[in-house]
Design a protein around this nucleic acid. Structure first.
Length: 589
RNA sequence: GGGGGUGUGGCGAAGUUGGUUAUCGCGCCGGCCUGUCAAGCCGGAGAUCGCGGGUUCGAUCCCCGUCACUCCCGCCA
């Protein structure tokens, strides 16, 4: 290197006028006017326009003709204010430019496979294969810088509040509950496998029993499940746990953390305490356990109106143990066409709903394919309960309760967007509390809503023997803009209760001992009352930055099939390696 | 495991109700150009239309299969 960098590409202003500087970076774009050539020089700090003028340096100007996108160069030159009217208000450094006296080509680049600065429409295959190039894109780069700042702020907050950061193992043991594990074969224990952690849950409970009192970790977690736009196979949790606390204490700390983040990064005051809603209310009024409270369109329960309806579809749904619920799309009659309404049916088909009924409240009276079946009293009660007025559109789903919740929940969010009811700049935080301890799995057996270490509400505990599905837990989720940003619970710290929960889950003594033996043991050696919470850091950054994909906040994300196109992972391994691990591959194609 | 979308020069797109030179923009190469900022003008190169099979006189287009990317359902304690 001929020159040592003196400044970055993001910092020069008029105040630097007259200074001789050295900048290093990548050629982002060149504009060659024959007599004079402009180049946008890019580094992680920003972009600066540099000027090659033959009157300044004939040689540099001549050599610069060959510079192309993504060449790495180092330039020496003088900072000058741009001529009148030539400033670029869109650039942080737009008031100045650097007249190059000398430069060095540090590394010529091949023609890049795509335009680094405008890659947002390029196929993911390209972007992920050449991720190191795409990361030169300022927007993507700034996402990662923002993520770094948020992570740092979280860490500082927790340390300032007496939390201790402890690392827990990545090579750990497979658990029968929960997501599929990523397995790692053990060479020295042939035939045995480690699992990568789905979360540090049991380790942090162990740390509480050890007396660490307040623990946190920015932890990588791994779940071998199918991916979504907001789900990667490896992701990061801000994991924390506290001893001698109840639900209020944990929630208070997390609220304070968010107040700080919103102040620091958005200059917004978060009003505390955050609003709370029970799980039951969330499901009833919003159709999901993570309600988007940025807009209304609440779901209205109408089963009692229609339990003896003249409209057979509604009456039968209620008779079969399901329900009829509706949303009043206020003042939407004029903006929703017949096609919009008909399109709702395929929209809810994915949730196995049979269809969506609707009533358009026109000036001339209700327009609907179904209203003619209703008895007189039903219409009146319906309009009253939904507060239906001229100009509104009522939409109905009648089915089993989970189907109704999912369908109306999704329709609610769809129309919230379509009708422009959502302020995209809002960050709406709230808690959902009082989750049920158990949900029914496919066979109707209890499965934990949160996880099997969550404690029941003390006042409900006696129903564990008689009516498990009515028992509520000390679990809480923090919800931002309709997305679960994190969740936690007060854990079981009593051996007998933990064994009881295992038994309800169909885990017998022997299995419990094999899978969770150390926990059951540890609970007998002075386990303090404890609880905590984990935040999904990737999702949190997504919400803060309002990005559409989790890939936009991760440096090297995986594809939907969990492959890394840059490294080509996962890959085949040598027979020798497999031999060492005592592994034979079946159906090796 | 299931459903939807996409795949055409390096990148982004158009197109062909099946017809023989596959179009446009960017980029690339060459030339011109002293104030651009995704510069402009002129010229040029570059494509077995994802892959395999079928139907047909003829397939980029129709059919079947397959692969990749993507969105969703299931799944994600």
């Amino acid at each position: 290197m001929k020159f040592k960098r003196t400044h970055t590409c993001g910092e020069l202003t008029k105040a630097h006028t007259g200074k001789t500087v050295v900048l290093s970076g990548w050629v982002e774009n060149y504009r060659d006017h024959g007599g004079v050539e402009f180049i946008d020089l890019n580094d992680r700090w920003g972009m600066t326009q540099i000027v090659f003028d033959p009157e300044i340096s004939r040689k540099a100007h001549e050599l610069a003709q060959h510079l192309r996108s993504q060449d790495v160069i180092s330039i020496k030159g003088n900072v000058r204010p741009r001529p009148d009217g030539m400033a670029n208000p869109n650039m942080a450094t737009g008031e100045v430019e650097v007249y190059v006296t000398d430069f060095e080509l540090l590394n010529k680049s091949k023609t890049p496979p795509f335009d680094v600065n405008h890659a947002e429409n390029v196929n993911q295959e390209m972007r992920l294969k050449y991720r190191y190039l795409e990361l030169r894109n300022p927007e993507l780069r700034n996402n990662l810088i923002f993520r770094s700042k948020v992570t740092n702020s979280i860490r500082n907050f927790l340390v300032d509040n007496g939390f201790i950061e402890v690392e827990t193992p990545v090579l750990t043991k497979a658990t029968p509950e929960g997501a599929r594990d990523y397995l790692v074969p053990s060479r020295v224990n042939s035939g045995k496998f480690y699992a990568l952690p789905q979360s540090p849950q049991l380790f942090k409970q162990a740390l509480m029993i050890s007396g660490f009192d307040k623990y946190f970790q920015i932890a990588k977690c791994f779940r071998d499940e199918d991916l979504r736009a907001d789900r990667q196979p490896e992701f990061t949790q801000v994991d924390l746990e506290m001893s001698f606390v109840d639900q209020e204490d944990v929630m208070a700390v997390v609220e304070k953390l968010f107040a700080r983040l919103l102040k620091e990064f958005f200059n917004r005051e978060l009003k505390l305490p955050l609003p709370r809603m029970t799980y039951d209310q969330a499901m009833l009024e919003y159709g999901k356990d993570a309600p988007d409270l940025r807009f209304g369109l609440k779901i209205v329960e109408l089963s009692d109106v229609f339990n003896d309806s003249g409209f057979g579809v509604f009456a039968n749904a209620v008779k079969d143990g399901g329900c009829v619920r509706a949303i009043n799309l206020k003042n939407a009659a004029s903006s929703l066409s017949r096609k919009d309404l008909d399109d709702m049916t395929p929209f809810v088909k994915v949730f196995r709903a049979k269809g969506v009924a609707w009533i358009k409240m026109n000036e001339s009276g209700p327009q609907s394919p179904i209203v003619k079946f209703f008895k007189e009293g039903e219409v009146k009660a319906l309009f009253e309960k939904t507060n239906a007025e001229t100009g509104d559109v009522l939409i109905f789903v009648a089915d089993k309760e989970p189907v109704v919740c999912q369908s109306l929940g999704a329709l609610r969010e769809f129309f919230g967007k379509k009708l422009g009811l959502i302020d995209e700049n809002e960050l709406n935080l709230s808690w959902v509390v009082d989750f049920p301890m158990f949900e029914k799995d496919q066979d109707g057996n209890p499965t934990p809503t949160h996880h099997p270490f969550t404690s029941p509400k003390p006042e409900d505990a006696d129903r564990l023997d008689t009516d498990v599905f009515s028992v509520k837990s000390n679990a809480y989720d923090i919800v931002i803009n309709g997305t679960e940003a994190g969740g936690g619970s007060i854990r079981i710290h009593d051996n007998a209760m933990q064994r009881k929960i295992f038994s309800i889950l169909g885990i017998d003594e022997e299995q419990a001992k094999e899978k969770f033996g150390f926990l059951l043991d540890a609970l007998q050696y002075g386990a303090p009352p404890h609880g905590g919470l984990a935040l999904g850091l990737d999702r949190l950054i997504m919400l803060f930055l309002n990005t559409e994909s989790i890939r936009d906040v991760i440096a090297f994300p995986k594809t939907q099939k969990a492959t890394c196109l840059m490294t080509d992972a996962p890959g085949v391994v040598d027979d020798e390696q497999l031999e060492e691990l005592s592994i034979d591959i079946r159906d090796n194609l």
